[in-house]
Amino acid sequence: MEVAIAAAAVVAMGTGNRVLYKLALVPLREYPFFLAQFATFGYVVVYFSILYLRYQAGIVTDEMLSLPQKPFLVVGLLEAFAAAAGMAAGAVLSGASIPILSQTYLVWQLLLSAIFLKRRYRINEIAGCFLVTVGVIITVASGSGTSASFKSTGILWPLLMIISFFLQAADTVLKEIIFLDASKKLKCGSVDLFVVNSYGSAYQALFMCLLLPFLSKLWGVPFRVLPTYIKDGAACFLNMGSISGCEGAPLLPLLFVLVNMGFNISLLHLLKISSAVISSLASTFSVPLSIYAFTLPLPYIGVASSLPPGFVAGAAVLTAGLLLYSLPQARHFGNTFSQQK
């Protein structure tokens, strides 16, 4: 039941995250790079503040904080390079093609979990993941002209986006390894998720700083004008000063930041109590829900989108995949028949 509730939270937060990101870019349409960096560096402050409060409350112990830093450093490195690769490819690829390519994330997780966690998946679990992937592709691609988009961009940028999702999958599996190792080594039996979040985010921010000249160029912001860009972005974020066209700020960007933070926390919590693959499946379910959400009369968006022709079919296939994955394992013991989760 705990896993089901956590998965539902991930789905809800994931849907809100996708919708609010689109809404946040209405006032910040000229400053998407500012929003990305604000999230990256702002989360470090927030996560460590929460970590400090939990430490003062006795939830986080000195033993947790003394865990080896190398795994967290690798987490930060993977997240930074995943973001860099994703930004580079995302600047060229169409918006419709990215959710399709993102389905490789689940494939990478299955492979990496099998290799590094020695996890063996049943036929129904593999088939369920396959159906989930197919369902998302049907939902997204049915009305988007995605095939033409892939032809126009060539093979390099889709491959780079796939590499980005590989790095994200590796990051998730590594976090699962951290949780599993901590449960064996720590006397308290588990490491608080804010220890993982805080250290990982800090190292990610460090590597993002090193990549800042490269990343700013990807977003069309010359490094020499970056201070001015950040200043103007902050003014638009706060809807202050002489910057025009920032209607909806600061409410919409702040809502996105809060929900995005909640999504990351809920996703890590689900990862901690289940597995990387289950957290990925829950996150994937938010894709068709967010597509449906954009058909509603949302503020600041303008004319609502129409549902893709294959939405119902894709959602049905995706749901069937989730149900197939969650089928209990059946085993025979002599003349008895029992089921195990």
Rank of each mutant, 00 (worst) to 15 (best):
A6S: 15
A7F: 07
G14F: 07
V26C: 04
V26W: 07
R29D: 06
P32V: 00
A36P: 02
Y43V: 06
V45L: 09
Y55M: 06
I59M: 13
T61A: 02
L67R: 12
K70Q: 13
P71M: 11
L77T: 01
L78R: 06
L78A: 05
G86M: 07
A89T: 07
G90P: 00
A91R: 12
G95P: 02
I98R: 02
I98L: 04
P99A: 09
P99C: 09
S102V: 09
V107A: 12
L112V: 14
A114Q: 14
F116A: 12
L117K: 10
R120V: 15
E125N: 03
C129N: 05
F130C: 08
L131Q: 02
V132L: 14
T133A: 15
V134G: 03
G135P: 04
L156W: 14
I163K: 02
I163W: 11
L174G: 05
E176D: 13
C188K: 14
S190E: 03
F207N: 01
C209D: 02
L211W: 00
L212Y: 00
L215E: 08
S216G: 11
K217Y: 12
G220A: 10
A235T: 08
C236W: 07
M240F: 08
G241Q: 14
I243C: 03
I243T: 09
G245S: 13
E247W: 10
L252H: 01
L254G: 03
V257Q: 00
L270S: 10
K272M: 13
S275I: 06
A276T: 10
A276H: 00
I278T: 10
A282K: 00
S283D: 07
S290H: 05
I291M: 14
Y292V: 03
F294Q: 04
L296I: 03
P297T: 07
P299V: 05
G310A: 09
F311H: 09
A316N: 07
L327D: 04
A330M: 13
K341A: 12
